[in-house]
Each structure stands twice: as C-alpha cells, then as structure tokens.
C-alpha cells in the first residue's frame, strides 16, 4: 500500500463488537438502545446494517466508530480492546484508521471541496505536496475532478456526499463507516453513491460498514445484518451484487 493506489490485504479482523449494550438515561427512565450485540468485520468487507428508525443502528455505528463508549461489552479495533483507551487515543485511531460518512454530509461550509477533503490530513504531518496529491487523486476518483474549488453550497447533494466520501478515504483508513449515506439523496444519486462505495471497496479493500433503512442499499453489500430493537435479528450474504 503506497500513495493513492493503496490496498489492504483482505481477511484480517478490523472491527469487532463483543456483547455490546448501550443504555441511555431519559430522565429517570433507562432505555436500552443496544442489547448484547456481537459484530465482526474483516478487512475488505462491505457490510450493511439494515433496520428501521430507532432500531439502534446509528448507536452501533457510533460505538464501532469509537465516537461513543458502550455501557457494557467491548469494541475491538484491529483485534485490540478499546474500552481502556483514553479520549486522545480514540481520537488518534479515528483520524488515522477510520473514515466517516454522514447522512447530512457534514462538510465545513466555509471550506472548498478540496479543502474539506484535505482537512483530516492536517493532523497527519504530511507534506503539502503529498496532501495535494491525495486530494486531487481522490476528487478525481469520486468523480469531482475540476470541482475542488467549489464550496459545499455550490454543489448538489450527490456531489457533497462524494466530497464526504473522499474526505473519509483521504487518510487511507482501514474502515469507513457510513451513516445513512443515501438518506438525503434521490434514488438515482443514491444508487450512484452506493456504486461508488462498492468500487472503492473493491479497489482499496477498505472495509465499509453502512447503516441504512433504505431498501436500495443492502444489495450493494457482501453481507447484511438486520437490526431490530437493539438486537441483531439475522445475517445474510448477498449473492448478486449490482455490477
């Protein structure tokens, strides 16, 4: 793996959840958003966690992304437990090893598309030349060649999500976690975005974990987990993925 044409060897465990539960306090009441969920993804996986609103899928994603800590259980990253890591260590893992894509794109409005993609690289001590090369290459890869100077409000929803995907990949992470990446897009653009994620997964062997309630998304995955009421209800492999 080197430069922009990076590719990880498939098969090593990347993210693992062992009987994780998450309990929220709503006033005096306690709500169990996740109930002893087990999860495993290996390098190069494309996993979709599918479920309706309130099923706990975003909660699970936040735990896997090391943004939140489980009330019980353990999240392992690259085989190592994370519960005892400090906030600083978790932030380090997130910026070095994890890419995130949000439902509402979450781009920084005052930065251009290229600057948004470059932003996570600023903490990685890369040379300016290396940063620019990565940004240029990724913008081209996600189909935004020539649009780097535009600000988010000058881009369509699909283009913004492409910028967000480029931003997630620019640090060459082991895993990209996407929260409802098609929810704010029309169906055609949603398909394009999923196709893009599928291609990037194939090309770079980056693990993709996508949570969604959009029925158009699961067919792009290799594996689909159904989640309901904070529990994994079932797991299936997708035989015929779109080309």
């Amino acid at each position: 793996m080197n430069g922009q044409g990076f590719c990880y060897a498939r098969g090593d465990p990347v993210l693992q959840a062992q009987k994780v539960s998450k309990i929220y306090a709503l006033g005096k009441e306690k709500v169990k958003a996740l109930d002893e969920v087990d999860f495993l993804s290996t390098q190069g996986d494309f996993v979709v966690i599918n479920g309706p609103s309130g099923s706990g899928k975003t909660t699970l994603l936040n735990l896997l992304a090391l943004i939140d800590r489980p009330s019980q259980g353990e999240v392992l990253f690259e085989g190592k437990p994370t519960s005892k890591l400090s906030e600083r260590d978790l932030a380090f893992l997130r910026r070095q090893r994890i890419g995130l894509v949000f439902q509402t794109f979450n781009l920084i409005p005052v930065l251009t598309a290229a600057e948004n993609v470059e932003y996570p690289l600023l903490l990685l001590n890369l040379s300016r030349q290396e940063r620019e090369q990565r940004v240029r290459s990724l913008l081209e890869e996600v189909g935004l060649d020539g649009l780097g100077r535009r600000r988010p409000d000058e881009l369509s929803g699909g283009q913004r999500q492409r910028v967000a995907i480029a931003r997630a990949l620019v640090t060459q992470p082991r895993v990209v976690l996407a929260d409802e990446p098609t929810a704010n897009l029309d169906s055609t653009t949603g398909k394009q975005i999923m196709g893009l994620l599928q291609n990037l997964n194939g090309e770079h062997c980056v693990t993709f974990v996508v949570v969604t309630h959009d029925p158009a998304v699961p067919p792009y995955a290799q594996r689909v987990l159904d989640i309901r009421d904070g529990k994994i209800q079932g797991e299936r492999y997708v035989a015929d993925r779109p080309a």
Binding site: A91, F92, R94, Q96, L100, F102, I108, L123
Partner: peptide, 10 residues
C-alpha cells in the same frame, strides 16, 4: 461534532 468525530482533538 463532525471534526471531533474525524479525530481532531478537542
């Protein structure tokens, strides 16, 4: 929240 999620220290 976004930049913190991306790993930028507080």
């Amino acid at each position: 929240a976004t930049v913190r999620a991306l790993g930028v220290p507080w």
